[in-house]
Design a protein around this nucleic acid. Sequence first.
DNA 1: CAGAATCCCCCCGGATACTG
DNA 2: CAGTATCCGGGGGGATTCTG
Lengths: 142, 142
Amino acid sequence: MNTMSQKENDACRSYDPSKCPTVSEMLSRLGDKWSVLIIMMLREGPKRFSELKREVVGISQRMLTLTLRALERDGVVRRTVFTTVPPSVEYELTDLGQSFAEPIVALGTWVFRNHTLIQKARAEFDARQQDGRAGQKLVRIA
Amino acid sequence: MNTMSQKENDACRSYDPSKCPTVSEMLSRLGDKWSVLIIMMLREGPKRFSELKREVVGISQRMLTLTLRALERDGVVRRTVFTTVPPSVEYELTDLGQSFAEPIVALGTWVFRNHTLIQKARAEFDARQQDGRAGQKLVRIA
DNA sequence: CAGAATCCCCCCGGATACTG
DNA sequence: CAGTATCCGGGGGGATTCTG
């Protein structure tokens, strides 16, 4: 079940970014949200730059370049240049990327399945704010 | 296995943020990286504000407040105010939050287990850049 | 103790133009 | 086609101060 050594487990349980720099960096990478979308796109197979640009709606070519570069650096994406005219570049998930995609997809799936509950919670929260937080859980002591 | 309707599935496979606003918003929430750390902290049980501030190394009280508020709004964290003097506030995961924590932890665990491979990939990538990308995969045609 | 408010800097990221 | 280079505005987020 838990294949982590006790030492590793302790180190991560401290939740200190300085002790788990890679972890917090990788998590930050998800923040730009483009990374997740690109990884999900590439699960379908190798894609060209322009193909990704077309399918990842709303991304600028600048962010596409930067995000792909970062993913390549982390070893989850492989970049292959075909020296044709005009040039063609293909991006695909590495083995590491394939394995990374699993928890990513699990996360996306969770959000998708629960987005109704989330939106309901947001609506209730916003309504509470207007009523001066009348509905909040509050415990009175003495 | 797959409880998603075909229509929902299609909508998400488009990877269009405008069609999956909640999904991309939730993913963006992970970006600030504080959310993930806080959720992992709260898996251990209810925590007070100052307790979180102490244990989530590097976070400012401003970001702690804002992040907790956002998580509360999304319905993954419950905020309980004890009207003592001095005041005390407790934060805990809701049922939704507990379920959300699962894919989060899976993601964190993956990064932790593979951080050696990632760091190796980064080192190789950086070395490649210095050598004028001599080691990149390049396919020559014609 | 648990915030709210204010100031302010940095840099993320979009738009546009240019190149091999 | 697949980038790079440059400019630039908005906001994310830290530091500090004030309050119930």
